[in-house]
Simulated assay, not measured.
Amino acid sequence: MNKHFEDARYYLTRAGKKAKQGVAEELEPVEEKFRELTGGDEEPEASRLDKIRADLEEIEERAEGEAKEAVGKARERIHAYRHGEDAAPAESKA
């Protein structure tokens, strides 16, 4: 790319950043007044998506615990089978 274009791109990017900072500074009092009038400082209620994510994390943890428990029981049964003990634990006999 031509050096002139590189320089122009650099200065345009810099000008854009400075313009954004200037607009943010100018609108700061307006934003503060808006937040004051609307109560924008309060923590918003958890959205439906956040609630679903929390539920899914809980289900995942529960499933992981159940899977670990099932693997543990399976290992016990395999160990018992290999050592000639009764393969079915007393609690699962019907």
Score class of each variant (00 low, 15 high):
residue 3 K to N: 01
residue 3 K to Q: 10
residue 3 K to D: 03
residue 4 H to V: 15
residue 4 H to E: 15
residue 4 H to Q: 13
residue 4 H to S: 13
residue 5 F to V: 15
residue 6 E to Q: 15
residue 8 A to Q: 11
residue 8 A to N: 06
residue 9 R to A: 06
residue 9 R to V: 09
residue 10 Y to G: 04
residue 11 Y to Q: 12
residue 12 L to A: 05
residue 14 R to E: 12
residue 18 K to A: 11
residue 19 A to E: 12
residue 19 A to I: 09
residue 20 K to I: 05
residue 20 K to N: 13
residue 22 G to N: 07
residue 25 E to N: 06
residue 25 E to W: 03
residue 25 E to M: 06
residue 29 P to F: 00
residue 32 E to G: 03
residue 33 K to Q: 15
residue 35 R to F: 09
residue 36 E to H: 14
residue 36 E to S: 14
residue 37 L to A: 14
residue 41 D to N: 10
residue 41 D to Y: 07
residue 42 E to M: 13
residue 42 E to Q: 12
residue 43 E to R: 02
residue 46 A to C: 06
residue 47 S to L: 05
residue 47 S to Q: 01
residue 49 L to S: 12
residue 49 L to T: 14
residue 50 D to C: 05
residue 50 D to S: 15
residue 51 K to E: 10
residue 52 I to L: 13
residue 52 I to M: 14
residue 53 R to I: 14
residue 53 R to P: 04
residue 54 A to K: 12
residue 55 D to Y: 01
residue 55 D to N: 09
residue 57 E to G: 01
residue 57 E to V: 02
residue 58 E to H: 00
residue 59 I to V: 12
residue 59 I to Q: 06
residue 59 I to N: 05
residue 61 E to R: 14
residue 62 R to A: 09
residue 63 A to Q: 02
residue 66 E to C: 10
residue 66 E to A: 07
residue 66 E to I: 07
residue 67 A to M: 04
residue 67 A to H: 09
residue 68 K to G: 08
residue 68 K to D: 04
residue 68 K to E: 08
residue 69 E to L: 10
residue 69 E to S: 14
residue 70 A to F: 00
residue 70 A to H: 04
residue 70 A to D: 01
residue 72 G to K: 01
residue 73 K to Q: 05
residue 74 A to D: 00
residue 76 E to A: 07
residue 80 A to V: 03
residue 80 A to K: 15
residue 80 A to L: 05
residue 83 H to T: 13
residue 84 G to T: 08
residue 84 G to E: 04
residue 87 A to W: 07
residue 87 A to Q: 11
residue 89 P to R: 00
residue 91 E to T: 08
residue 92 S to R: 13
residue 92 S to Y: 12
residue 92 S to A: 10
residue 93 K to Q: 14
residue 94 A to Y: 08
residue 94 A to H: 07
